[in-house]
Each structure stands twice: as structure tokens, then as C-alpha cells.
């Protein structure tokens, strides 16, 4: 690999690190965008079959070209800026929605050592970047200068801030027991312990000792991405489409892409933090990227499954679940884990 790249790097000279990093970014973002496009198809198909329908099957063989057709349609549509809107912010909204959900992938490790930026405080950086996601929604809702978008953005602000707290506490438990903020180290710390030596690695992953946190994190992740059953931000029957009401064409598509990219991100994070990332579930089988992909695919399926199963929560119930159920549980569990680590019964020595 090094020898192969040598003439290319000489051609670019001092600009080589920039070019190489850009190439890596494209290598991450391009498959991600393709995955996002096909996740929309998968969602329609999966929900279709769950509701005893067929789902899209007209464009291409078995409907496989449907996302391409949808993308083309949105690309060629006109973007209408309402006359009463705050123009600069109206354009900035969708950009701020998608930028953090792509930037967060910079610290996600795909395999041992396969990461764009192996940052010491990777988990913290991920939290910081994802906490900025809400701005796209808020700005879009305000800049539209319209009532439904505004209501949607108010709901988004309250909901995303509330569930971030629970998510943060769940992550504190994870970093307590792996005593590192580096995502690769967190994965490595799951590949050791009594069960791992017995060949049952999947029992040594974080999900078992942190089972309540795992569940809280997954549910908060669904709430954080504004997916059903927590999709009051864009609940059709209440606020039409929330912050996206006034957007058309590609500006709308950016919100859509951001939502699906966030689903990918939450799934990958759950896989990395609780399900051992790229580690194989039983001993003797080589670890690798395919395990991470499989686990991510499973959690993405859970997202779709949950959407097809549960009715939408009422807004006050969402707030109650976040503040009165999840935050007390996580607070108690942080203390439990800390005491457990210091006691002689600790399994993380």
C-alpha cells in the first residue's frame, strides 16, 4: 500500500496530507450516503412487509432503483424561499442539520486502527458534535417564519436537549468501565474478561453489565434522531411536517438525509459502545469490519421495527419518560457502576 502510494504522494508534494485526508473523507461519506439512500428503500420495504404490503417495486428490478429516482426528483425540484423568511438562515438551516451528522463520522472507528481521526477524547467529541444537530432544526423552524415549523422547532429543542442528558449519563457509565474516551480503546476493553476466555465473547461486551444503560441509550437514540415513536417534531397529524413544512427540493432532502445519517450514527455508536464493535461474538472467528456492519444493520432494523410497531408518544409523555424515568435510572446506575468498580466484585480489573 505504502509503496503503491509513493509516486502519488510525490506528485502532490506538501499538499499530500490534505489530499490523502480528503480521499479518506470521500471514502467514508460516499458509502454512507449510498447507505442512507438504500436505508430509505429498506425502511419502505420492511415496513411494507410488516404491514402485509409489498412496498416500492416499480423502479428497476424489485424496486431497487427507487432511491435513485427519488434523489433525482428532489435534485431537479425548485427550492422555494418564502417571502417572509429570513433568507440567510433559511438556507443555513438544512446545512447545519446535515453538517454535524457527517462530521461525527470523523472519530468513528470501522476496524482496528481504521479511523479517520484517532482522537483521545473521541467519545466527548462525538457528544459535542451531535449536540449541535439541534441547531439545524431550530434555525429552520424560526427562519421559515411560519407557525407549524416554529412549533416543530420548539418541540425539537426541548426533546433533543432532554434526551441528550440521559444519553450522556449512559455514556458516562461506558467510559467509567473502559476508563478511556477513545472509541477504539472502548471496543478493545470489551474484548477481555472471563467470558471472553471461555470463547463466549458476546457475554463480555458492555451490554450485559450495563443492560439498563444499553436500553436507555437505544431509546434515547431513537428520541434524539426524532424517529417514531418520538417523532412529534414532524408529527403529521399535529404540525404537518414540523420544521420542514416550508422546504422543497434538495433543501428538504438535506433534512431527510441528515435524519437517516443520524440513524446510522446512533446504530454504529450502539454497536461500538455496547456490542463490541468489530469484535466477533464467539472465540475462534476472526474479528473484522463485517461484524460492525452486521451489528449496525441490526440496530437500523430495530429503528424500522420500532417505527412499524409503536404509536406516536404524546408530547408530555415524551418529556416524562426523559426526565422522570431515564435520568433517575441513569443517575442511580452511574453510582452503582462506580461502587461496583471499586468493590472486590469488580469484573473490570
Amino acid at each position: 500500500m505504502e509503496a503503491l502510494l509513493e509516486p502519488v504522494s510525490q506528485f502532490f508534494g506538501p499538499a499530500w496530507p490534505v489530499v490523502w485526508t480528503l480521499a479518506k473523507i470521500v471514502a467514508i461519506i460516499a458509502p454512507l450516503m449510498l447507505g442512507v439512500a438504500y436505508l430509505t428503500l429498506a425502511e419502505r420495504k420492511v415496513i411494507g412487509y410488516m404491514q402485509v404490503r409489498i412496498g416500492p417495486n416499480r423502479v428497476g428490478p424489485k424496486g431497487l432503483l427507487q432511491p435513485i429516482a427519488d434523489g433525482m426528483k428532489l435534485l431537479f425540484k425548485e427550492i422555494i424561499v418564502p417571502s417572509g423568511a429570513s433568507k440567510g438562515l433559511f438556507i443555513l438551516g438544512p446545512i447545519l442539520a446535515i453538517a454535524p451528522s457527517l462530521a461525527a463520522w470523523s472519530v468513528v472507528p470501522f476496524n482496528d486502527g481504521m479511523v479517520l481521526a484517532n482522537v483521545n477524547a473521541g467519545l466527548l467529541l462525538l457528544l459535542a458534535i451531535t449536540s449541535m444537530e439541534v441547531y439545524g432544526v431550530i434555525i429552520a423552524g424560526w427562519a421559515s417564519n411560519s407557525k407549524y415549523p416554529f412549533l416543530g422547532s420548539m418541540r425539537a429543542a426541548a426533546q433533543m436537549v432532554s434526551y441528550e442528558v440521559a444519553m450522556g449519563f449512559a455514556l458516562i457509565c461506558v467510559l467509567l468501565i473502559s476508563s478511556s474516551l477513545n472509541l477504539s480503546d472502548i471496543v478493545h476493553s470489551q474484548g477481555q474478561g472471563k467470558f471472553h476466555e471461555m470463547g463466549l465473547s458476546f457475554l463480555s461486551w458492555n451490554w450485559l453489565p450495563l443492560l439498563p444503560m444499553f436500553i436507555v441509550f437505544l431509546i434515547s437514540g431513537i428520541a434524539e434522531t426524532n424517529r417514531a415513536p418520538f417523532d412529534v417534531v414532524e408529527g403529521e397529524s399535529e404540525v404537518v411536517a414540523g420544521h420542514m413544512v416550508e422546504y422543497s427540493g434538495m433543501a428538504f432532502a438535506l433534512f431527510f438525509l441528515a435524519e437517516y445519517a443520524n440513524m446510522f450514527l446512533v446504530s454504529v455508536m450502539t454497536a461500538l459502545l455496547f456490542m463490541g464493535g468489530w469484535l466477533s461474538p464467539i472465540g475462534g472467528i476472526p474479528d473484522g469490519f463485517h461484524w460492525l456492519a452486521l451489528k449496525t444493520a441490526f440496530f437500523l432494523f430495530v429503528f424500522l421495527w420500532v417505527r412499524a410497531t409503536f404509536p406516536r408518544f404524546r408530547y408530555d409523555h415524551i418529556m416524562r419518560l426523559g426526565w422522570k424515568v431515564f435520568i433517575p435510572i441513569t443517575l442511580v446506575w452511574v453510582i452503582v457502576v462506580a461502587v461496583w468498580m471499586m468493590s472486590p466484585l469488580s469484573i473490570w480489573k
Binding site: 441547531y135 431550530i138 441528550e164
Partner: peptide, 26 residues
């Protein structure tokens, strides 16, 4: 000072200013 930098963004940008905007917008 990466910890302080990230925490500044997380606390002030991710939480405080969101609530601030929440009020100012109304």
C-alpha cells in the same frame, strides 16, 4: 486543551444556547 474545548462546545453550544434560543425566539 481538547477537553475544555469540547466541553465548552458541548455545554454552551449544545445545551445553554439551545435553551437561550428557545426563549429568545419566542
Amino acid at each position: 486543551a481538547e477537553f475544555l474545548a469540547i466541553v465548552l462546545v458541548m455545554v454552551y453550544v449544545g445545551a445553554v444556547m439551545v435553551l437561550f434560543l428557545f426563549v429568545v425566539m419566542m
